[in-house]
């Protein structure tokens, strides 16, 4: 059995196999795999006995359920008005330069993906970003370099 099939089976055991259990299962797969492959979506459809199109339709509706292979760390920069006013473009430029990727891309080593997202709810501490589920606020180019350095070293130690 593929590891992802087992993961899906475990998630279904944990949450249930009804339609209203679909979102927690999709989220569980994304948490482990960082994205939903076509294979994962088909497996979920089979496990929950749902049409694959329904699973695909639901999965692709939500911006945090990625269906493209993502890096180990997903960086999401808030692009809504206050963050935009307070210099989010400089933050993006800094990260693009540091990781040598553009917004929407993943580093070749598969460690970082850079995305923009809508309002994170930290407008009073703009600009803000998420790295996976961790929030970083009051960003400056300098601060962002320090934060990313920590993540890059973390990955070196683990890898």
């Amino acid at each position: 059995m593929y590891p992802v099939s087992e993961l899906i089976k475990n998630l279904a055991d944990q949450h249930g196999r009804m339609r209203h259990n679909l979102l927690p299962i999709l989220q569980g797969v994304v948490e482990q795999e960082k994205y939903l492959s076509e294979y994962s979506m088909l497996e979920i459809a089979r496990e929950l006995d749902l049409p694959a199109a329904e699973v695909y339709g639901t999965a692709t509706f939500y911006s945090f359920l990625e269906h493209k292979k993502m890096g180990k760390y997903i960086i999401r920069i808030c692009k809504t008005i206050t963050c935009s006013m307070k210099g989010k473009n400089q933050i993006i430029k800094t990260i693009e330069d540091m990781l040598n990727i553009n917004v929407g891309e993943t580093t070749p080593d598969g460690n970082f993906s850079l995305l923009q997202t809508n309002c994170l709810g930290f407008c009073h501490m703009a600009p803000a970003m998420l790295i996976n589920y961790e929030v970083f606020t009051d960003l400056t180019p300098e601060k962002v370099r320090e934060i990313l350095t920590v993540f890059i070293n973390k990955k070196d130690k683990e890898g």
């Binding site: 009804m18 339609r19 209203h20 259990n21 679909l22 979102l23 927690p24 999709l26 989220q27 329904e54 339709g57 639901t58 509706f61 939500y62 911006s63 945090f64 359920l65 997202t117 809508n118 309002c119």
Partner: peptide, 24 residues
Amino acid sequence: FMGSGAYICGEETALFESMEGKRG
């Protein structure tokens, strides 16, 4: 119940749909 990044799910009936495992 965790959402997954969709502003529209703050609309009450979209939120129900989302909780029922559907598009919001």
